[in-house]
């Protein structure tokens, strides 16, 4: 059920924009934070709060791939298969993870606790191949290290992003995305030498 406290947050989000319907994207994340997916009920709630039709909400909710229409489970696993990650082993990582989870692209694991998705470039090519867990980065993964992460998560052990905060769960992340809470942004090493290498070269004018 969409609780009254979620409704209050929805209204707060709507109040952040000159045109309330601009708040639809974060509101849909809020629905996922509460219900682990975008439910019909959640769509109805967004439509009601924004005074738009359910069809308009459905159009948005089905257009963007970050919105899911069946339960995601405890964790969302993304494996980048775009050019750089792909070349550096992303496809192999994806295959192993899929096998481990018993999942296919954009679907739940056999036990329903995970959701697997092939994802597009995350602008993290420096540390390719990358995997995301609840949209936090796992840099420079190998098929084995990726599966290790999943095993740990499955066992309920503590897992940290290679450059960010501790992994919580999908719904917690969705709440962060919805409300644009930024208190997690400063945890960990977000920027390292490797990421800045290209910038340094550019600044030195060496590429000419």
């Amino acid at each position: 059920m969409i609780t009254e406290s979620t409704r209050i947050k929805m209204r707060e989000l709507a109040g952040r924009y000159p045109n309330p319907r601009s708040a639809l994207l974060p509101m849909l994340h809020l629905v996922q934070a509460e219900q682990d997916e975008v439910t019909t009920e959640g769509i109805a709630a967004c439509a009601q709060e924004l005074e738009i039709t359910q069809a308009e909400v459905t159009a948005v909710a089905t257009f963007y791939t970050m919105y899911k229409h069946s339960p995601v489970g405890k964790h969302h696993i993304g494996v980048c298969i775009n050019t750089l990650c792909g070349l550096l082993g992303g496809d192999a990582v994806y295959d192993r993870v899929a096998e481990r989870l018993g999942a296919t692209h954009n679907g739940p694991s056999a036990d329903g606790n995970f959701w697997l998705e092939r994802i597009e470039c995350q602008a993290a090519c420096t540390h390719a191949p990358v995997m995301t867990v609840d949209w936090e980065f796992m840099d420079d993964v190998t098929p084995q290290s990726a599966v290790d992460v999943i095993d740990k998560l499955a066992a309920g052990e503590e897992v940290w992003s290679t450059r960010g905060p501790m992994i919580r769960d999908f719904q917690a992340t969705e709440h962060t995305l919805a409300m644009a809470e930024d208190d997690l942004a400063t945890i960990g090493n977000c920027v390292d030498e490797k990421m800045l290498a290209g910038l340094k070269i550019a600044k030195s004018g060496a590429q000419q």
């Binding site: 019909t40 738009i52 039709t53 359910q54 069809a55 909400v57 459905t58 159009a59 257009f63 791939t65």
Partner: peptide, 21 residues
């Protein structure tokens, strides 16, 4: 009556309505 919309994207793009309306 904006209750008819283009749903989904790419090759799956399709006209449709909300589940409930």
């Amino acid at each position: 009556d904006a209750s008819l919309e283009l749903l989904e994207r790419g090759a799956q793009q399709q006209v449709g309505t909300a589940n409930d309306e």
